[in-house]
Write a protein that binds this DNA or RNA. Structure first.
Lengths: 207, 207
DNA sequence: GTCTATAAGAAGATAGAC
DNA sequence: GTCTATCTTCTTATAGAC
């Protein structure tokens, strides 16, 4: 890993924990194992490092999201997968999404950074809303819309269903960001939540 | 309003928008209409202002929470109120809780400040978790437990019910903190959520 | 209680040697 | 590409006049 990437990595870790303004350039350099002035051979300013993180993480996100059809206007592929959905596979989807969001090193640090910086400007606010609210909700909504059309789920407002499915996941995720030691309880509650969700919305005769 | 309180107020506004470290003492003094050194006649340090905010807001919270029986180990009074619960009164409770959390000037700014500072130390993390996760969830759980005992709601895991009821409220609340212009859509979705929730959990023969 | 003046230090960033 | 030395500005905080 080259120095430029190591700076980005160290900065992301520090920004995620303390916020942009609370971290000094010297601190970042220290974490990388160089002196502060050396850092300016790689980035022209502290703000430049922040912007590079933003760019890099947005690129990663778009790749990840498009592979899941989370950003596009259709979820056709996933509907195909979930048309043979069972309670266990619904749990797998929920737990999988949750643990990925929670444990992927970059995703996790970037989410914390955005959490801290979200009120600084409208661009960061919009990015947070897109990645952690709008995209997951519209993705889930489309999934449930298809599962409804297949006759597997009771007919219901899919936006509300998406909110019912995703909001607990979101709350538990932000909880674990703050209190990592509560992950076991969170996972247990998440599983109970999905079982209950399945019980509520799934047609009795389906499967 | 005396100067000491005006400093607290101005500092809270600034901390909520930019975070503790991004705000200078001069900026706070400016917002109050005095010079920075004058501020030290009221508080002995910048950190002292922050701690005073924390203390003041925790006191306000405890008063508010105890009047709602949110912190205690029982929700007896509220169960009495909600034993005559209707769909409309459930919506009123949800919307009321939501708009209070969102529009109360102090509650709102303090929540934003905690959001920004939550990863700085474990004390702030614990405070956030208590006020915006644990207390509301245990409160809701107790309410549903009583409504279940009254035979108004279907029997179900009340912790999961509380999560189903509160998590969407929480997601929409944090969304509106970030994007205040989305409040109308959020309120509409919140109302739909509660109607759906009621439909799901309420016994058909109840009422 | 407010001000001006100022200390003491930290921060972002540059110059120039190696 | 890394370092030391340095500049400049910002920031917290104090001293002391009014």
């Amino acid at each position: 890993m080259n120095t430029k990437s190591r700076i980005l990595d160290a900065a992301l870790t520090l920004f995620a924990e303390k916020g942009y303004h609370s971290v000094s350039v010297a601190e970042i350099a220290d974490a990388v194992g160089i002196k502060a002035p050396s850092l300016y051979k790689h980035y022209k300013s502290k703000r430049d490092i922040f912007d590079a993180i933003l760019l890099e993480m947005q690129t990663r996100y778009e790749i990840q999201a498009s592979s899941l059809n989370m950003n596009g206007s259709n979820a056709t592929v996933d509907a195909g997968i979930f048309s043979s959905v069972s309670e266990e596979s619904l749990i797998q989807m929920g737990i999988g999404l949750f643990t990925y969001f929670l444990h992927d090193d970059y995703v996790c640090r970037f989410r914390k950074m955005l959490t801290i910086e979200q009120f600084h400007d409208t661009e960061l606010a919009a990015l947070y809303t897109k990645q952690y609210n709008d995209d997951p909700l519209s993705y889930q909504s489309q999934i449930f819309s298809m599962l409804g059309a297949c006759g597997l789920f009771r007919p219901a407002n899919t936006d509300v269903m998406a909110l019912h499915f995703y909001a607990p996941l979101y709350l538990l995720l932000t909880l674990c960001d703050r209190e990592p030691e509560q992950e076991p309880e969170a996972l247990q509650l998440l599983e109970q939540h999905i079982r209950q969700f399945n019980l509520i919305y799934k047609k009795e005769n389906a499967q």
